[in-house]
Amino acid sequence: MLRIADTFVVERPRTVAAALALLDAHGDKARLVAGGTDILVNIKHGLHAPEVLVDLKAIDGLRVVDLEGDVFELGALVAIHDLARHPGVQAALPSLARAAGLIAGPQLRRMGTLGGNICLDTRCVYINQTHFWRDALGYCIKKDGTVCHVTKVGKKCVAAASNDTAPVLWTLGASVRLASPRGVRELALEDFYVNDGEKNTVLAPDEILTHVRVPRPAPTRRMAYQKLRVRDSIDYPMLNLALAFDLDGGVVSNLDVVVSAVAARPRRVKRLPEGPLSAALIDEAAALAHKQVRPLTNINGDVAWRREMVPVLLRRAFAEALGEEAAA
């Protein structure tokens, strides 16, 4: 059994302002916790040694699911389980509900939160290990070291973004609302993530992600989410892919494909085609995705196999978005 060092205190503020004040008071000795499903494991592994954990769960107002206006508002503390099961989310944002339902297992989905999943730390076979393991191999860039065991030569950490919700929200044009002592700012999700495995978000140490905002999709919008893993439960993605497009009169436009569990930042496939829905269009998109996405040895699963799965997931996402079972 891994041990969790009992060297921190837990604070339970009731308001965002109080939470911000605690962050301000403790600086880099403090870390935020909501469901705890990511950070507690990382503390056990010695990746963080906070002196204060600021528990956000007592804050009112961060569990909102507001699907009324032109922009939906989802609170950061919405449980993954509730997101997956919410009838309104299932109807309006089916790819998001589906992605949430594929996260981890039932217990973790009840503990974990939307905000936590968006802020999930990057993962790598060389970092999500015990201190003993990392000590034996030699530390790496992400924590305490100077080398990268994945790329051998690189100076930048390539640990992979492993959140299920991030690529989906990206294709939905979502933004995140961040509160800090300087006020509240709103950032497009694609500007929230940066391509650095050490820390792959621009969230400042004194900042709290409070809400996710998603524009109401047009009635023509189709969307899907596909996840690669060996088991039907528990596991992080070995690869994942979110897709969205408008389908109007049989014509595909605004096709958006975001692939993740590859690099520190989810990756948008570029130069995707538009035009009448056809096998040729899907083939072209699949070929582009295969060409542009190159998995690394940063997470589990054979690299060559994972790359071959990129077009497979894309075809499946099309089938899912079109409500088809077979589209091979």
């Binding site: 339902g101 594929l102 899907a224 596909q226 996840k227 039907d232 439960s233 075809r315 499946r316 996402a317 089938a319 899912e320 079972e325 077979a326 589209a327 091979a328």
Partner: peptide
Amino acid sequence: TRPGGGQAAGR
């Protein structure tokens, strides 16, 4: 009923 789904049945 398996969760997930979306596999291409024809394949």
